[in-house]
Each structure stands twice: as structure tokens, then as C-alpha cells.
Amino acid sequence: MDQFTGKVALITGAARGQGRNHAVRLAREGADVILVDICAQIESVPYPLASRADLDETVRLVEKEGRRAYAEVLDVRDLPALEAAVAAGVAELGPVGIVVANAGIAPLDSTEPDPVQRWHDVISVNLTGVWNTCRAALPSMVAAGEGGAIVLVSSTAGLRGNLGGSAAGDAYVASKHALVGLARNLANHHAPDSIRVNTVHPTGVATPMVENESLARKHAAQTEASAASSNLLPVAILQSDDISDAVLWLCSPSARYLTGVSLPVDAGYSVRA
């Protein structure tokens, strides 16, 4: 249970949900972690986002595993803030060897008072925020000369396009598809540095981004959307551990020759007829 001993992992959207689970699981396998989260509400997002108390709980859970944590509240849309946080985390914990770019929003409710703002918010968090994360982390990884692994958390919406015609749906599908291209380009560019870059594509996961009143109202109002969100295997929703299993594998020596790969963890959703 120590395959990441001596490694430092940067995880965004780490205050709760998948991000927290990835942090705890990496810590359990020996990694120290740099944790960032916005811990504030984005106006166009109809469900509650994480709080500082949530981020503090992630820190507590990491430390309970016997590992060190460096945490900062910041918006992944703010590249200078990310760069400063990574620099501070590296100074305290050591060079980054693993990146899990997990932060994202899915404001997919049944109303859209400002579609233009919603488009910009989703694209800026889900795509620009991921690029910022890689941009902030890669200098430390390259300078260390020890290779590394980057996992961009996409979605089944990064493989299929069936979220309806809303601005949020368009932006979510576009941003998650774009992560595949970003990962492939980074994989090509950083292969000489032995830095691997892959995407993981979850179906619905039991986190606050999926299990909230606004998304429930949307599915209740749109029978077609509800039907389109069903998995091929007989499981309604996955758990964060199911995604962490894939993330940790992609970051591990067992996947040392995998780069530029798009890995669905979706109970067959992406191949459902």
C-alpha cells in the first residue's frame, strides 16, 4: 500500500466528492498532496459548491492516513494563484509528480437565466482551469526530471454528445471533449520528459455535482435526458472509489506505458445503443 511513497500529487476540486476521494486514496498509497478548491459559489451554478470546512475535512482525512497536505483556497481560472499555490506546495512537500485535474462544474438545470454567462463559466472552469492546472504543475515536474503522470478528469460527455441544447449542456460537452485533445497534445509534447497524460471518463458518480435538486428537476422534466443517462450494466450510479481506482492505476507504475489514452469508467454508458 505504498506505491506512491515519495510522490507529491496536485489535486484540484479537492474539497469534496471525487477530488477528496482521489486525495485520500493517493495518501493511503503514500503520496503527500497539494489540495486546491474554490470553496465559494459561482453565481451561474445552481447547486451548492464546496466550503472551506469541506477542504479542511479533506486535509484531516489525508493527515489521518499519515501523509502531509498543503491546501489553498483558489479559483482554477486564476493561473497566477495556481502557480503561487503550486510553488508554495512544492517548497513544503517537494516537486509535483502526479496531477489530478478534477475541478469542474455541471450547471445542468431546467432553467437558464443567462446562457452566455453559463457558457463562459463552464468553459473557463472545465477547460481553461484544467489547462491552468497543467501549466502551473508542469515546470516542477519537468525540472525534477523524474517523469510523472497527469490525469484529466473528463466525462462520458467527453465521448458522447447528448446533453440537450442548453448553453450549459453545449459547454459541458465541448469542454469535456476538449480535454481529450488537450491530453493528447500534452502527451506528445511531454513524452521526452517521461510525463504521461491521460483522461478518465466517468458516468454519473454519487457526488454533490450529480446528486442535487437542480439536476433532479431537469431529469424529471426531460424523460429523454433521464433515459439517455442510464448505464449499460445494471448499476444506476458509480461511487467515487470506482473512479479513484482508475485514476490511481493511470498514475501507477502498472500503467507506465499508457499515455494519450481516454479511459471510460462508465458501466458501458459510452457504448450503449
Score class of each variant (00 low, 15 high):
6 G>Q: 08
7 K>I: 04
8 V>S: 04
10 L>T: 02
11 I>F: 07
18 Q>L: 15
26 L>M: 04
27 A>F: 01
30 G>T: 00
34 I>V: 14
44 S>D: 11
47 Y>D: 11
54 D>P: 04
56 D>L: 05
57 E>G: 07
60 R>G: 01
61 L>K: 05
65 E>N: 08
65 E>I: 11
76 V>D: 06
79 L>D: 06
81 A>H: 09
82 L>K: 05
85 A>C: 12
86 V>H: 07
87 A>N: 13
88 A>M: 09
92 E>G: 06
93 L>G: 04
94 G>V: 07
96 V>I: 14
102 N>I: 00
103 A>L: 01
107 P>R: 11
112 E>Q: 10
113 P>H: 11
114 D>P: 04
117 Q>W: 06
120 H>Q: 14
126 N>I: 08
128 T>Q: 14
131 W>N: 05
134 C>N: 03
140 S>P: 02
148 G>Q: 06
153 V>D: 03
154 S>C: 07
154 S>A: 13
156 T>P: 03
156 T>H: 04
157 A>N: 13
157 A>S: 12
162 N>W: 13
168 A>H: 00
173 V>I: 08
174 A>N: 01
174 A>I: 01
181 G>T: 03
187 A>Y: 02
189 H>D: 14
190 H>I: 05
194 S>K: 14
196 R>Q: 10
199 T>D: 10
201 H>D: 11
209 M>N: 14
213 E>H: 05
216 A>D: 13
217 R>L: 15
219 H>C: 15
220 A>F: 12
221 A>M: 09
222 Q>C: 15
227 A>W: 15
233 L>R: 08
236 A>V: 11
237 I>G: 04
238 L>A: 15
249 W>Q: 06
252 S>M: 10
256 R>Q: 12
256 R>N: 11
259 T>Q: 07
261 V>P: 02
262 S>G: 12
264 P>M: 08
272 R>D: 12
273 A>C: 10
